[in-house]
Nucleic acid binder design. Structure first.
Lengths: 253, 253
DNA sequence: CGCGCACTTGAGTTCGTTCAATCGGGGTGG
DNA sequence: CCACCCCGATTGAACGAACTCAAGTGCGCG
């Protein structure tokens, strides 16, 4: 139950001398808003940094829950598996975001997390984090905000899956990525998709073929350029309008 | 911005001498696992009980966030509204469950909560609850579990919306209600649907007609009885199998 | 009794899927 | 260096599950 799983190489463990204060993500991540003293206390409990190769698994459903993980760099996907084998990607996570919050209830992970590219995470022992909550109210506050953010994020996905047509879901997806890259200081209009078409389709409740057709349609409309996984949004305004539901695409053009 | 909204009567405010200790839900609700002394401290911060009539709104998207609400009795639905007017029900809540956790980030409510029947909630001022967290670690722990539970609940909905056919979604829905009533000491096989077919359809990403047809189909298969909103599960096993994806319904029978 | 509302049922349509063929780039081995 | 293969992606054609539109039912309430 506890040993490495089905042939996946044990994740490399590297002791890197690095701190939250040095981390470029500390304004988005768990330590947001902490003063130097508190930053230090948080640093002290961070277990270790873990490097993961593309497709390597950070944790798996059913594993006992001990740590949260803050992404230092790289991208992840999280997914749930059906009793009958069906798989649903529940999110794509990027640097500064927290993994594992769904495992707090139940003491076991409720989904799998897999690296979409070579990535690094900070391991945060949850019991030690809990100890710290009593001493650093600012930290607790921000932690609650992060959990709550995750709840609203998922509500938005539900809205998309339950209520929107394919093209609108896809526009929402692109605009969401764009905004998150913008928040990290990257271009909002030009970025790499770190996930396959298949992953996108699964996440949005569509097939890979549908994603491919949507990309072609948006490209033919002149709304974006797409070269392999490199996207350039040529008309972010109309994509935003589609995401908001105030514009729609002609069936074909 | 702060006054009562579009004709909804101001919610009745009643000062009832009641406590968590007396509440039949205290084993499921926020006070779970607290000893009497801590129960008392929690009691002291509970603002007031609020009664809501059917269709009355507890809070609305955009309203400033001050309180969480614990449901004493009754049922609620929460829903999000699209910029373009589209509406997605994100959950149905029953006694012992907590409302408002999505509002912690952002300080404003991100969805609306409406009573499905005459109901009563406990108002929990969040800032006072935060104060208490420092003093009652057990309370904080359980609060984290509740938030985490909400995250996993929503992941399950995403799985259902993104991955399952109509009949499976509906089976999941029924089995989920059944389990929650069972946890509250009610019959798992016979209960009232507190929400309309339309609400169910919206929640499951289906139309009201589809829900109606599914009910008829399940009835014709002899798997349940349905009389208005009174459901009796006649073959919970096969419904569970359908929910798990290990059985499926013939198109018509 | 008659109106309104929630629900049911039927018939035709549509959006996205399924199935299948093809493309194209990157890696491997002859 | 080229031939070959593999895999992810694209494109086309036909299908089907769920939707839309429309008519009908039944119950509650004034």
């Amino acid at each position: 139950m506890n040993q490495p799983i089905q042939g996946a190489p044990p994740p490399s463990v590297i002791a890197i001398k690095s701190s939250c204060a040095n981390c470029s993500m500390h304004q988005l991540c768990l330590p947001m808003g902490l003063d130097n003293a508190d930053l230090d206390r948080l640093d002290k409990i961070i277990g270790r940094r873990r490097r993961l190769a593309r497709d390597e698994r950070l944790y798996q459903m059913g594993e006992p829950f001990r740590n949260l993980y803050a992404i230092r760099f790289g991208h992840f996907k999280t997914f749930q598996v059906n009793p009958s084998g069906g798989l649903q990607i529940t999110g794509f996570q990027m640097a500064g975001e927290l993994l594992g919050m769904d495992a707090i209830s139940g003491d076991r992970h409720h989904c799998d997390a897999v690296a979409l590219e070579d990535s690094e995470v900070c391991e945060i022992p949850f019991s030690r984090l809990e100890d710290l909550f009593g001493e650093v109210p600012t930290l607790l506050r921000h932690f609650h905000r992060l959990m709550s953010q995750e709840i609203t994020r998922e509500q938005n996905v539900m809205l998309s899956l339950g209520n929107m047509r394919a093209e609108q879901r896809f526009a929402v997806f692109l605009i969401n990525l764009s905004a998150r890259y913008a928040a990290r200081g990257y271009s909002p209009d030009s970025f790499q998709l770190r996930m396959s078409r298949e992953d996108i389709g699964n996440y949005l409740g569509l097939t890979i073929e549908s994603i491919s057709r949507l990309l072609s349609r948006f490209k033919n409309q002149g709304w974006l350029k797409i070269d392999k996984r490199e996207v350039t949004l040529l008309d972010p305004a109309i994509l935003k309008a589609m995401a908001a539901g105030t514009a729609q695409c002609s069936p074909m053009a």
